[in-house]
Computed example of a mutant assay.
Amino acid sequence: MKRVIKSLLQYIPWLLLLLGIDLFAALLLWLADVQAFYALMIVIVLVTVLLFTLVCGVLIHLERKKEQAFLTFLHNPDEYHEELLLETVSVAQREYIRQLGKTLRDKQLAYTELQTQLSDYEEYVESWAHETKTPLSLLTLLLDNRRDELSPIVSFKLDYIRNRIQESVDQMLFYARVKSTRKDYLFEHICIRMCIEDVLDDYRPLLDEKQFQIQFRLSDDTVYTDRRGPYFLLGQIIGNSIKYCGEGPELCFSSFQRDGCYVLSIKDNGVGVRSCDLPYVFEKGFTGDSGEGRKKATGMGLYLAKEIAEGLNIILSANSEWGNGFEMQVAFPVVDENPY
Protein backbone atom coordinates (compact mmCIF):
# COMPACT_ATOMS: atom_id res chain seq x y z
CA MET A 1 0.00 0.00 0.00
CA LYS A 2 2.84 2.38 0.85
CA ARG A 3 4.49 1.76 -2.51
CA VAL A 4 1.19 2.53 -4.27
CA ILE A 5 0.86 5.81 -2.39
CA LYS A 6 4.46 6.75 -3.18
CA SER A 7 3.84 5.99 -6.86
CA LEU A 8 0.84 8.31 -6.95
CA LEU A 9 2.48 11.17 -5.04
CA GLN A 10 4.52 12.24 -8.07
CA TYR A 11 1.28 12.65 -10.04
CA ILE A 12 -0.47 14.80 -7.42
CA PRO A 13 -0.23 18.06 -9.45
CA TRP A 14 -1.80 16.40 -12.50
CA LEU A 15 -4.50 14.72 -10.44
CA LEU A 16 -5.32 18.04 -8.79
CA LEU A 17 -5.48 19.65 -12.25
CA LEU A 18 -7.87 16.94 -13.41
CA LEU A 19 -9.99 17.45 -10.31
CA GLY A 20 -10.00 21.21 -10.91
CA ILE A 21 -11.20 20.76 -14.48
CA ASP A 22 -13.93 18.42 -13.30
CA LEU A 23 -15.07 20.91 -10.64
CA PHE A 24 -14.92 23.76 -13.15
CA ALA A 25 -17.17 21.82 -15.54
CA ALA A 26 -19.59 21.13 -12.68
CA LEU A 27 -19.57 24.84 -11.82
CA LEU A 28 -20.40 25.80 -15.40
CA LEU A 29 -23.29 23.33 -15.39
CA TRP A 30 -24.57 24.79 -12.13
CA LEU A 31 -24.41 28.35 -13.54
CA ALA A 32 -26.14 27.29 -16.75
CA ASP A 33 -28.97 25.28 -15.21
CA VAL A 34 -29.28 24.69 -11.47
CA GLN A 35 -32.07 22.14 -11.85
CA ALA A 36 -30.08 20.13 -14.39
CA PHE A 37 -27.06 20.29 -12.06
CA TYR A 38 -29.01 18.84 -9.13
CA ALA A 39 -30.50 16.20 -11.38
CA LEU A 40 -27.11 15.15 -12.65
CA MET A 41 -25.14 15.63 -9.39
CA ILE A 42 -25.09 11.94 -8.49
CA VAL A 43 -24.01 11.02 -12.02
CA ILE A 44 -21.27 13.69 -11.89
CA VAL A 45 -19.94 12.34 -8.58
CA LEU A 46 -19.98 8.73 -9.82
CA VAL A 47 -18.26 9.69 -13.09
CA THR A 48 -15.64 11.67 -11.16
CA VAL A 49 -14.91 8.75 -8.80
CA LEU A 50 -14.81 6.32 -11.72
CA LEU A 51 -12.53 8.62 -13.69
CA PHE A 52 -10.09 9.06 -10.82
CA THR A 53 -10.11 5.31 -10.06
CA LEU A 54 -9.40 4.52 -13.71
CA VAL A 55 -6.61 7.10 -13.95
CA CYS A 56 -5.00 5.97 -10.69
CA GLY A 57 -5.21 2.33 -11.81
CA VAL A 58 -3.51 3.12 -15.11
CA LEU A 59 -0.82 5.14 -13.37
CA ILE A 60 -0.14 2.36 -10.83
CA HIS A 61 0.09 -0.20 -13.63
CA LEU A 62 2.54 1.97 -15.57
CA GLU A 63 4.66 2.58 -12.46
CA ARG A 64 4.82 -1.12 -11.66
CA LYS A 65 5.77 -1.89 -15.25
CA LYS A 66 8.47 0.79 -15.09
CA GLU A 67 9.75 -0.53 -11.74
CA GLN A 68 9.94 -4.10 -13.02
CA ALA A 69 11.73 -2.98 -16.18
CA PHE A 70 14.17 -0.91 -14.10
CA LEU A 71 14.97 -3.78 -11.71
CA THR A 72 15.48 -6.16 -14.62
CA PHE A 73 17.72 -3.57 -16.27
CA LEU A 74 19.82 -3.19 -13.11
CA HIS A 75 20.25 -6.96 -12.89
CA ASN A 76 21.20 -7.25 -16.56
CA PRO A 77 22.02 -3.84 -18.07
CA ASP A 78 22.40 -4.95 -21.67
CA GLU A 79 21.05 -3.00 -24.64
CA TYR A 80 17.94 -5.19 -24.98
CA HIS A 81 16.76 -4.52 -21.42
CA GLU A 82 17.74 -0.88 -21.80
CA GLU A 83 15.33 -0.55 -24.75
CA LEU A 84 12.56 -2.20 -22.72
CA LEU A 85 13.12 0.34 -19.95
CA LEU A 86 13.18 3.25 -22.40
CA GLU A 87 9.67 2.33 -23.54
CA THR A 88 8.35 2.93 -20.00
CA VAL A 89 9.90 6.35 -19.33
CA SER A 90 9.33 9.82 -20.70
CA VAL A 91 11.36 11.31 -23.53
CA ALA A 92 13.16 13.61 -21.09
CA GLN A 93 14.38 10.63 -19.03
CA ARG A 94 15.63 8.53 -21.92
CA GLU A 95 19.02 10.24 -22.23
CA TYR A 96 19.69 9.62 -18.51
CA ILE A 97 18.77 5.96 -18.92
CA ARG A 98 21.18 5.62 -21.85
CA GLN A 99 24.00 7.19 -19.83
CA LEU A 100 23.19 4.92 -16.89
CA GLY A 101 23.18 1.84 -19.15
CA LYS A 102 26.56 2.72 -20.64
CA THR A 103 28.07 3.32 -17.18
CA LEU A 104 26.68 0.06 -15.80
CA ARG A 105 27.97 -1.94 -18.77
CA ASP A 106 31.43 -0.39 -18.38
CA LYS A 107 31.43 -1.19 -14.66
CA GLN A 108 30.22 -4.72 -15.34
CA LEU A 109 33.00 -5.28 -17.88
CA ALA A 110 35.61 -3.92 -15.45
CA TYR A 111 34.21 -6.15 -12.67
CA THR A 112 34.37 -9.22 -14.91
CA GLU A 113 37.99 -8.47 -15.82
CA LEU A 114 38.83 -7.94 -12.14
CA GLN A 115 37.19 -11.24 -11.21
CA THR A 116 39.23 -13.00 -13.87
CA GLN A 117 42.45 -11.41 -12.62
CA LEU A 118 41.58 -12.32 -9.02
CA SER A 119 40.86 -15.91 -10.01
CA ASP A 120 44.17 -16.10 -11.86
CA TYR A 121 45.95 -14.63 -8.82
CA GLU A 122 44.34 -17.18 -6.48
CA GLU A 123 45.34 -20.06 -8.74
CA TYR A 124 48.90 -18.71 -9.00
CA VAL A 125 49.27 -18.29 -5.22
CA GLU A 126 47.93 -21.77 -4.52
CA SER A 127 50.17 -23.27 -7.23
CA TRP A 128 53.20 -21.37 -5.92
CA ALA A 129 52.51 -22.43 -2.33
CA HIS A 130 52.18 -26.09 -3.28
CA GLU A 131 55.32 -25.95 -5.42
CA THR A 132 57.25 -24.35 -2.55
CA LYS A 133 56.19 -27.13 -0.19
CA THR A 134 58.20 -29.64 -2.24
CA PRO A 135 61.65 -28.21 -1.36
CA LEU A 136 60.42 -27.66 2.20
CA SER A 137 59.55 -31.32 2.42
CA LEU A 138 63.00 -32.22 1.09
CA LEU A 139 64.60 -29.94 3.70
CA THR A 140 62.54 -31.59 6.43
CA LEU A 141 63.57 -35.03 5.19
CA LEU A 142 67.22 -33.96 5.11
CA LEU A 143 67.07 -32.64 8.67
CA ASP A 144 65.38 -35.78 9.92
CA ASN A 145 67.86 -38.16 8.26
CA ARG A 146 71.11 -36.19 8.57
CA ARG A 147 70.60 -34.37 11.86
CA ASP A 148 73.42 -36.36 13.50
CA GLU A 149 75.85 -35.09 10.87
CA LEU A 150 75.03 -31.44 11.63
CA SER A 151 76.14 -29.39 14.58
CA PRO A 152 73.37 -28.42 17.03
CA ILE A 153 73.68 -24.74 16.09
CA VAL A 154 73.39 -25.42 12.35
CA SER A 155 70.54 -27.85 12.92
CA PHE A 156 68.65 -25.31 15.03
CA LYS A 157 69.15 -22.54 12.46
CA LEU A 158 67.93 -24.76 9.63
CA ASP A 159 64.89 -25.77 11.67
CA TYR A 160 64.18 -22.12 12.40
CA ILE A 161 64.50 -21.16 8.74
CA ARG A 162 62.30 -24.06 7.65
CA ASN A 163 59.57 -23.13 10.13
CA ARG A 164 59.64 -19.46 9.17
CA ILE A 165 59.35 -20.32 5.47
CA GLN A 166 56.57 -22.78 6.24
CA GLU A 167 54.68 -20.17 8.26
CA SER A 168 55.03 -17.59 5.49
CA VAL A 169 53.82 -20.03 2.85
CA ASP A 170 50.85 -21.05 5.00
CA GLN A 171 49.96 -17.43 5.66
CA MET A 172 50.06 -16.57 1.96
CA LEU A 173 47.97 -19.61 1.07
CA PHE A 174 45.36 -18.92 3.73
CA TYR A 175 45.28 -15.21 2.88
CA ALA A 176 44.39 -16.16 -0.70
CA ARG A 177 41.69 -18.50 0.60
CA VAL A 178 40.24 -15.88 2.94
CA LYS A 179 39.91 -13.36 0.10
CA SER A 180 38.65 -15.95 -2.35
CA THR A 181 35.01 -16.02 -3.37
CA ARG A 182 35.15 -19.82 -3.38
CA LYS A 183 35.05 -21.61 -0.03
CA ASP A 184 36.26 -25.19 -0.36
CA TYR A 185 35.56 -26.31 3.20
CA LEU A 186 35.40 -30.01 4.03
CA PHE A 187 33.77 -30.45 7.41
CA GLU A 188 34.48 -33.59 9.40
CA HIS A 189 34.92 -34.78 12.97
CA ILE A 190 38.51 -34.30 14.12
CA CYS A 191 40.21 -35.05 17.43
CA ILE A 192 41.66 -31.86 18.87
CA ARG A 193 44.35 -33.66 20.85
CA MET A 194 45.66 -35.41 17.73
CA CYS A 195 45.55 -32.11 15.84
CA ILE A 196 47.63 -30.42 18.55
CA GLU A 197 50.16 -33.24 18.60
CA ASP A 198 50.58 -33.06 14.82
CA VAL A 199 51.25 -29.31 14.96
CA LEU A 200 53.63 -29.74 17.91
CA ASP A 201 55.60 -32.29 15.87
CA ASP A 202 56.14 -29.62 13.20
CA TYR A 203 57.59 -27.29 15.82
CA ARG A 204 59.33 -30.00 17.87
CA PRO A 205 62.95 -28.97 17.12
CA LEU A 206 62.27 -25.36 18.13
CA LEU A 207 60.29 -26.42 21.20
CA ASP A 208 63.13 -28.71 22.28
CA GLU A 209 65.72 -26.01 21.62
CA LYS A 210 63.81 -23.58 23.84
CA GLN A 211 63.22 -26.40 26.38
CA PHE A 212 59.46 -25.95 26.43
CA GLN A 213 57.43 -27.83 29.01
CA ILE A 214 54.22 -29.05 27.40
CA GLN A 215 51.16 -29.80 29.54
CA PHE A 216 47.94 -31.45 28.41
CA ARG A 217 44.66 -31.17 30.27
CA LEU A 218 42.47 -32.26 27.41
CA SER A 219 39.57 -34.59 26.88
CA ASP A 220 39.47 -36.82 23.80
CA ASP A 221 36.44 -35.00 22.40
CA THR A 222 36.08 -34.34 18.70
CA VAL A 223 34.89 -31.17 16.96
CA TYR A 224 33.11 -30.82 13.64
CA THR A 225 35.06 -28.43 11.42
CA ASP A 226 37.35 -28.13 8.42
CA ARG A 227 40.65 -29.82 9.27
CA ARG A 228 42.89 -27.16 7.75
CA GLY A 229 41.42 -24.38 9.89
CA PRO A 230 42.45 -25.67 13.36
CA TYR A 231 45.87 -26.72 12.02
CA PHE A 232 46.51 -23.19 10.82
CA LEU A 233 45.14 -21.59 14.01
CA LEU A 234 47.25 -23.81 16.24
CA GLY A 235 50.34 -23.23 14.11
CA GLN A 236 50.02 -19.45 14.46
CA ILE A 237 49.40 -19.61 18.22
CA ILE A 238 52.22 -22.07 18.95
CA GLY A 239 54.59 -20.17 16.66
CA ASN A 240 53.89 -16.96 18.59
CA SER A 241 54.47 -18.73 21.89
CA ILE A 242 57.91 -19.82 20.66
CA LYS A 243 58.80 -16.35 19.34
CA TYR A 244 57.88 -14.51 22.53
CA CYS A 245 58.83 -17.03 25.19
CA GLY A 246 60.76 -16.20 28.36
CA GLU A 247 62.83 -18.19 30.81
CA GLY A 248 61.59 -21.71 31.57
CA PRO A 249 58.93 -21.62 28.84
CA GLU A 250 55.71 -23.56 29.33
CA LEU A 251 52.79 -24.29 27.06
CA CYS A 252 49.53 -25.61 28.51
CA PHE A 253 46.60 -27.03 26.54
CA SER A 254 43.30 -27.47 28.36
CA SER A 255 39.64 -27.79 27.37
CA PHE A 256 36.22 -27.25 28.89
CA GLN A 257 32.58 -26.75 27.92
CA ARG A 258 31.02 -23.27 27.90
CA ASP A 259 27.73 -21.98 26.48
CA GLY A 260 27.28 -24.95 24.18
CA CYS A 261 30.84 -24.74 22.86
CA TYR A 262 33.95 -26.88 23.19
CA VAL A 263 36.61 -24.41 24.32
CA LEU A 264 40.31 -25.10 23.78
CA SER A 265 42.63 -22.96 25.90
CA ILE A 266 46.27 -22.49 24.87
CA LYS A 267 48.30 -20.67 27.49
CA ASP A 268 52.01 -19.85 27.73
CA ASN A 269 54.15 -18.00 30.26
CA GLY A 270 55.89 -15.71 27.78
CA VAL A 271 56.16 -11.95 27.69
CA GLY A 272 52.46 -11.52 26.97
CA VAL A 273 50.79 -8.47 25.49
CA ARG A 274 50.28 -5.03 26.99
CA SER A 275 46.71 -4.28 28.09
CA CYS A 276 46.53 -1.34 25.66
CA ASP A 277 47.46 -3.64 22.74
CA LEU A 278 45.22 -6.59 23.64
CA PRO A 279 42.02 -5.32 21.92
CA TYR A 280 43.91 -4.98 18.63
CA VAL A 281 45.86 -8.25 18.39
CA PHE A 282 43.52 -9.51 15.64
CA GLU A 283 43.81 -6.35 13.54
CA LYS A 284 45.50 -6.63 10.16
CA GLY A 285 49.15 -5.57 10.36
CA PHE A 286 49.05 -4.78 14.08
CA THR A 287 52.24 -5.77 15.93
CA GLY A 288 51.94 -3.79 19.15
CA ASP A 289 54.72 -2.72 21.48
CA SER A 290 55.55 -5.93 23.30
CA GLY A 291 59.29 -6.15 22.80
CA GLU A 292 62.00 -6.17 20.18
CA GLY A 293 60.74 -9.39 18.59
CA ARG A 294 57.49 -7.80 17.46
CA LYS A 295 59.30 -5.14 15.43
CA LYS A 296 60.05 -7.85 12.85
CA ALA A 297 56.53 -9.27 12.93
CA THR A 298 54.11 -8.79 10.05
CA GLY A 299 50.94 -8.67 12.13
CA MET A 300 49.24 -11.08 9.73
CA GLY A 301 49.22 -14.33 11.72
CA LEU A 302 46.44 -13.63 14.23
CA TYR A 303 44.56 -11.55 11.66
CA LEU A 304 44.39 -14.53 9.31
CA ALA A 305 43.56 -16.80 12.25
CA LYS A 306 40.58 -14.58 13.09
CA GLU A 307 39.42 -14.51 9.47
CA ILE A 308 39.66 -18.29 9.13
CA ALA A 309 37.87 -18.74 12.46
CA GLU A 310 34.96 -16.53 11.42
CA GLY A 311 34.53 -18.52 8.22
CA LEU A 312 34.31 -21.73 10.26
CA ASN A 313 32.05 -20.26 13.00
CA ILE A 314 34.89 -20.55 15.52
CA ILE A 315 35.24 -17.88 18.21
CA LEU A 316 38.73 -16.65 19.15
CA SER A 317 39.39 -14.64 22.30
CA ALA A 318 42.71 -13.49 23.77
CA ASN A 319 43.71 -12.84 27.37
CA SER A 320 47.06 -11.62 28.59
CA GLU A 321 48.87 -9.89 31.42
CA TRP A 322 52.04 -8.06 30.50
CA GLY A 323 55.02 -10.14 31.55
CA ASN A 324 52.85 -13.01 32.72
CA GLY A 325 51.95 -14.99 29.59
CA PHE A 326 49.35 -15.08 26.86
CA GLU A 327 46.20 -17.19 26.56
CA MET A 328 44.16 -17.89 23.45
CA GLN A 329 40.75 -19.53 23.76
CA VAL A 330 39.32 -21.29 20.69
CA ALA A 331 35.59 -22.02 20.99
CA PHE A 332 34.20 -24.67 18.63
CA PRO A 333 30.39 -24.94 18.37
CA VAL A 334 29.12 -28.34 19.49
CA VAL A 335 27.20 -30.05 16.69
CA ASP A 336 24.29 -32.29 17.67
CA GLU A 337 24.70 -35.49 15.66
CA ASN A 338 21.08 -36.55 16.36
CA PRO A 339 18.97 -33.38 16.11
CA TYR A 340 15.74 -35.34 15.63
Rank of each mutant, 00 (worst) to 15 (best):
N324W: 02
G301M: 06
E67Y: 12
R227I: 12
L54N: 06
P135W: 11
E149I: 09
G235M: 11
P205L: 05
H130V: 08
Y185Q: 13
A26Q: 12
Q35N: 14
T222C: 11
A318H: 12
V334W: 00
R227F: 12
D184V: 07
D201E: 05
L84P: 02
P135H: 14
M172P: 03
K284L: 08
I21E: 07
E95F: 10
S255R: 01
R164F: 03
V34T: 14
D198N: 07
P249L: 05
D148Y: 10
Y231P: 01
D268T: 03
P339K: 04
Y231R: 12
G325E: 07
K295C: 04
L114N: 09
G291Q: 02
A305L: 00
D78R: 06
Y280G: 02
L85N: 01
I190S: 08
H130T: 10
H189K: 15
P13M: 11
F52N: 15
R204P: 00
G272K: 03
D268S: 03
Q99K: 11
G235I: 04
L9D: 03
L206F: 06
D201Y: 03
E321T: 13
K267L: 12
M1R: 12
L312W: 04
F326L: 09
K179A: 14
E63F: 09
C276A: 12
V334K: 03
V334M: 06
Y38T: 06
A92S: 07
D148A: 15
S168E: 14
Y224V: 09
M300S: 01
F37T: 01
R228P: 05
G323Y: 00
F216D: 02
W14N: 11
Y38V: 05
S265I: 06
A26P: 01
N76D: 04
R105W: 02
E337N: 13
F256L: 05
D78K: 07
R147V: 14
R3H: 08
D144K: 15
V334R: 02
L71A: 07
L206Y: 06
I97L: 02
